[in-house]
């Protein structure tokens, strides 16, 4: 398991103030962040731009050293033993950078594999398997500059798997990809966790991606973790509203009064229409059972019913708004 405890990162840089003056600026990019990644699980780290996601991921990938805190991967202190740690982790960033465009996919992977000291015969076998996995076998000898965006991103994934890492950090892996390729990549990421037992940390701006993939989520804002939990836990704890919309026939006055009595001070009720009524109930808790019971007792026919649960995007937005 990867356990990061109380990670903080302070950047100190100089800013020009006039021709000769320079001012030292201290920026706390990440503050007291703690998180865990289990093998075979996908953990999401979400937040707006500048929230501290990339700094966190770079600390976990041993690219930058935390100012304070501890990171253990299977009991290995990766701050002290960062060279050892680099053998069991890898980082895959979204976009078209981080690979050599003039080289072919095969040449890129040969080079990056050699950096990990993988023996040539093992490396060749591995390259073949990985290219097959990401569907680039047929185009492996074409220079990367002739690849489409999706192919480049798949090569990035292949590169990130070259050392068979136990933990993979995915920094916005579907950025700018079209929906088909993004979907394909998501299913591939799920496979990595389920079939290959990789522990994955995913940062993304697409909440639907988080909802689809993540077993656990951390929400980061201004360098602090402001909420965490499984998608269901977050919805339950942080949701502000559940919406029930019913279409009913012949809503009697008595039924309407009783319904409003039941939900008084608990929910916001709107009733519209004449013969066919639309009842909209917005509440923090789910009162569906009470509503159905009340309508049934007055013999009101329910033609249609929709339960709209809180979506994660709204929850995240609320959390972020509150934390500002």
């Amino acid at each position: 398991m990867l356990i990061a405890t109380n990670l903080s990162k302070k950047f100190v840089y100089k800013e020009s103030k006039g021709l000769f003056k320079k001012k030292l600026i201290v920026k706390n990019a990440v503050n007291d962040v703690s998180l865990k990644i289990e093998s075979g699980k996908i953990v999401g780290l979400i937040g707006v731009n500048g929230a501290g996601k990339t700094t966190t991921i770079k600390m976990l990938a041993s690219l930058i050293k935390p100012t304070t805190g501890e990171i253990l991967i299977d009991n290995l202190d990766i701050i002290k033993e960062h060279k050892k740690a680099k053998r069991i982790i890898n980082l895959i960033s979204g976009g078209e950078r981080n690979i050599y465009w003039r080289l072919t996919a095969q040449e890129n992977l040969e080079y990056f594999g050699a950096l990990y000291g993988i023996p040539k015969d093992v490396l060749n076998q591995k390259i073949e398997t990985i290219l097959e996995m990401v569907g680039l076998t047929e185009s492996k000898d074409i220079p990367v500059e002739r690849y489409s965006k999706g192919m480049k991103q798949r090569l990035q994934i292949a590169r990130g798997l070259i050392n068979d890492p136990k933990y993979i950090f995915l920094d916005e892996p579907t950025l700018g990809l079209d929906i088909n390729i993004a979907k394909e990549l998501r299913s591939y990421i799920r496979k990595l966790a389920d079939d290959e037992n990789k522990g994955i940390l995913l940062t993304t701006h697409y909440i639907s991606e988080v909802e689809e993939l993540c077993d656990y989520i951390y929400i980061i804002s201004n360098g602090y973790i402001v909420a965490e939990g499984t998608p269901d836990e977050l919805k339950e704890e942080l949701s502000t509203k559940t919406q029930v919309v019913l279409t009913v026939e012949v809503l009697t006055e008595q039924a309407e009064v009783e319904l409003k009595d039941i939900l008084e001070c608990k929910a916001e009720v709107t009733i519209e229409g004449e013969n066919i009524h639309t009842i909209k109930v917005i509440s923090k808790e789910n009162f569906t059972a009470e509503i159905i019971r009340c309508l049934s007792s007055h013999n009101v026919s329910i033609l249609n019913m929709k339960l709209m649960e809180p979506d994660l995007e709204e929850i995240v937005l609320n959390v972020l708004r509150r934390s500002e």
Partner: peptide, 18 residues
């Protein structure tokens, strides 16, 4: 600029060899 330097640093490769 291409981010490849960061990818090299991400690996455990001996920098002197690089």
């Amino acid at each position: 600029q291409n981010g490849t330097l960061e990818t090299i640093i991400l690996s455990p490769a001996n920098w002197l060899a690089v």
